[in-house]
């Protein structure tokens, strides 16, 4: 395989809080290749958004990237001067967010918000930028784009606003798009339309996609690979079908196993008994131990290391037996 577009190695992100230092991301490593879709899954608070924001260099105090490496197309992003990082944002890497109602600036017209993006990266005339903006709106399935350009965000529905955000993110044909739960706030039909459109657009341009979600159904239909996060660590990773069909990590198994139906479509993350641990004081061993049905005495001595098996990997002392089919 060719070199990855994005290569994260042992990333650690900390937040200084009143309760102490919170390790929101604790040693995450990931590779994403050209045209690939990676599903990043986990319960709320597991560090998915922080991982995504770290890639774009958008972690603000009290947060900081404590250590690790993030390479985009071979360029090390950590420690890169802010101005060079700014040039890469929007141009080589883009990000869209969860709430389309608040992502666009309410007092600026759509055309302003699109044209400024192009002109932040390229020295083009306002007219050329405008026609490219119009083209981009058409590509994400927005009817009469020329008129939509002249509207304000509040005049558009949530689905339309998210499409505009996607159009903006893809304006410069970035190498990587980080989508942080972009359809969670939308209703199901619009959600699936938008997912299909993003998938289509990214495969046309070869844009790699990191799709953050807590909805396994979305990942099953969209992703090539899946990474499951728990308490700031990736606990299981691999091609989407083997991981979802035969999860080896008890956490993934739990997410899938206690699902109400055998049909993966429409499935949300299942409720696993217990609470996500406070990141400020994690147990010394495996962070999942207090909730784990497979836990044994040695689980709380040291954090489990990664076990590789072909293209997949997991972080567990007593993995779910192979071939145990959850469906």
């Amino acid at each position: 395989m060719s070199a990855p577009i994005l290569s994260i190695h042992d990333l650690k992100v900390e937040f200084g809080t009143r309760q102490g230092v919170v390790k929101a991301v604790d040693g995450v490593s990931l590779n994403v290749y050209r045209g690939e879709v990676l599903g990043l899954v986990g319960e709320s608070g597991s560090g998915k958004s922080v991982t995504g924001l770290s890639i774009l260099g958008l972690i603000d105090p009290p947060g900081r990237i404590a250590s690790g490496s993030i390479k985009l197309e071979g360029t090390e992003l950590i420690g890169l001067p802010e101005d060079e990082l700014r040039r890469l944002r929007g141009e080589r890497m883009a990000m869209i967010f969860q709430d389309p109602m608040t992502t666009l600036n309410p007092v600026l017209r759509i055309d302003t918000q699109m044209i400024e993006t192009i002109r932040a990266h390229e020295n083009v005339s306002e007219r050329a930028a405008r026609s490219r903006a119009e083209e981009a709106l058409k590509r994400v399935g927005i009817p009469s784009p020329a008129e939509r350009l002249l509207t304000y965000p509040h005049q558009l529905s949530g689905g339309m606003r998210q499409r505009v955000a996607i159009a903006i993110a893809l304006l410069m044909s970035p190498a990587l798009l980080v989508a942080d739960e972009p359809t969670t706030a939308l209703d199901v039909t619009i959600q699936s339309q938008i997912i299909a459109e993003v998938q289509q657009l990214c495969s046309e341009t070869g844009t790699a996609l990191i799709w953050i979600t807590h909805d396994l159904a979305v990942v099953a239909g969209l992703a090539d690979r899946i990474a499951v996060m728990y308490a700031g660590r990736i606990v299981e990773e691999g091609d989407v079908d083997p991981v979802l069909d035969h999860p080896r990590h008890p956490y993934t198994y739990g997410l899938l196993g206690s699902a109400p139906s055998n049909n993966r479509r429409g499935e949300k993350l299942a409720q696993i008994p217990g609470m996500t641990p406070s990141l400020a004081n994690l147990p010394s061993g495996c962070a999942f131990a207090p909730r784990c049905a497979f836990a044994q005495g040695d689980c709380s001595t040291a954090p489990p290391t990664l076990t590789h098996d072909g293209s997949r990997a997991w972080r567990c002392f007593h993995p779910v037996p192979d071939r145990e089919d959850v469906r």
Binding site: R87, R89, G90, F97, T102, V107, L108, A120, A169
Partner: peptide, 26 residues
Amino acid sequence: LQDYVRFARAKGLSPTRIVLVHVLKN
């Protein structure tokens, strides 16, 4: 702290433009 400022940063706008246009106008 608003999402639109974070999105504006993710678009690669300069801090000057974010403050003078996105923040100031609001």
